[in-house]
Design a protein around this nucleic acid. Sequence first.
DNA 1: GTCTATAGGGTGATAGAC
DNA 2: GTCTATCACCCTATAGAC
Lengths: 212, 212
Amino acid sequence: MLSETKTRILDAAEILLAQNGLSATSMRAITEAANVNLAAINYHFGSKEALIHAVFARRLAPVNERRLAMLDQVLKANPKRPKIRGILRAFALPILETAFQPTNENCPVQLGALMIRLYTEPAQVVERSFNEQMASTARRFVSALHTALPKLDNEVLYWRTHFCVGCLVHTMHARPILLAVSNGTIQCDNAEEALEQMLPFLEAGLTSASNS
Amino acid sequence: MLSETKTRILDAAEILLAQNGLSATSMRAITEAANVNLAAINYHFGSKEALIHAVFARRLAPVNERRLAMLDQVLKANPKRPKIRGILRAFALPILETAFQPTNENCPVQLGALMIRLYTEPAQVVERSFNEQMASTARRFVSALHTALPKLDNEVLYWRTHFCVGCLVHTMHARPILLAVSNGTIQCDNAEEALEQMLPFLEAGLTSASNS
DNA sequence: GTCTATAGGGTGATAGAC
DNA sequence: GTCTATCACCCTATAGAC
């Protein structure tokens, strides 16, 4: 069980890290927001880097558990030819929901903005988080897609999975851009709506002919 | 004409900003790499923020010029029903080429890693760069896609354009991830190869039925 | 477990000599 | 245009009192 202080630090840290990025967020800013002392971070986590890792681990672990549970369902329903739409949904929905669910009402932070740090911040800081939390999950999904699309060349499958991840990542963190380019037409404030737009696009891309 | 010092600062800055991010890159690191004095940045650019803006402007201006020139060609060839593949190519190729073209042989920096900062770093720092350099170009392309896909609902078109940008951005900056997940199968070291994989995927996504 | 105090160093920016 | 020197501030981490 986490101490209350530890939880308060994690809560404050994930909001600030998501908003401002990893290196732009100071331990001072975190401790002030969490109403704890500066030394508390080092006592509870050891260092800023270890705190960052803990922030990612807390959010990613349950997301990936849910992803794999949903994937198992999809594979069990059609073991020989699992449904592409189901695989994509299992990959996207759990993380999209965290991206559209504010952590608390005072600060409706997009967790997508936190996730994007895994892909963009200087490698060594988040590499451990990425490898521990994401790599094995990604391989499970590529393997499922391979079963669903047996005729697709392996190399093409890797590329297309990569494109799917790109769509997902961009959808999670670049909502302001979508809002701006669409002149305010598109608000997009729930995961199901985003998913409904995304799934047909991704499935069509995955199943398209390689060159036409 | 730029002074030699100014150019050296821009060259050094773009490499470091791309590698380490905006706030993690100090003016001291830049001036050391450029072999100029610390005060030179403030003399030539005024501030760190103004330097960052100059770095983006120098690279994005020619890219967007080329994009719009290519788009004009595509629109002129088929004014009433321009080819989707051509529009996508005009949007993607110019920036992909800069992403795969090292700025100099000493440090083969991916310019894609620099571009991604436009999407991920704290908004106010790059907002001006984004608005000045990207927003109008994006609108021209959305409008062209609208002409090419007249039956597509406006809202759906915005979403799908957004997904296309996501694929492109991810392809430009996340090459290491593609390399890792594919177990080293995919090297991907030139723009044409990436484009060949991307265009069928995006076109299929853009033209897919909205719900199936 | 939580605090204060501080070490030791990096940061952007600027004044002023040359 | 380019330098040195310096200001005022922020940073992470830790020692040691309570």
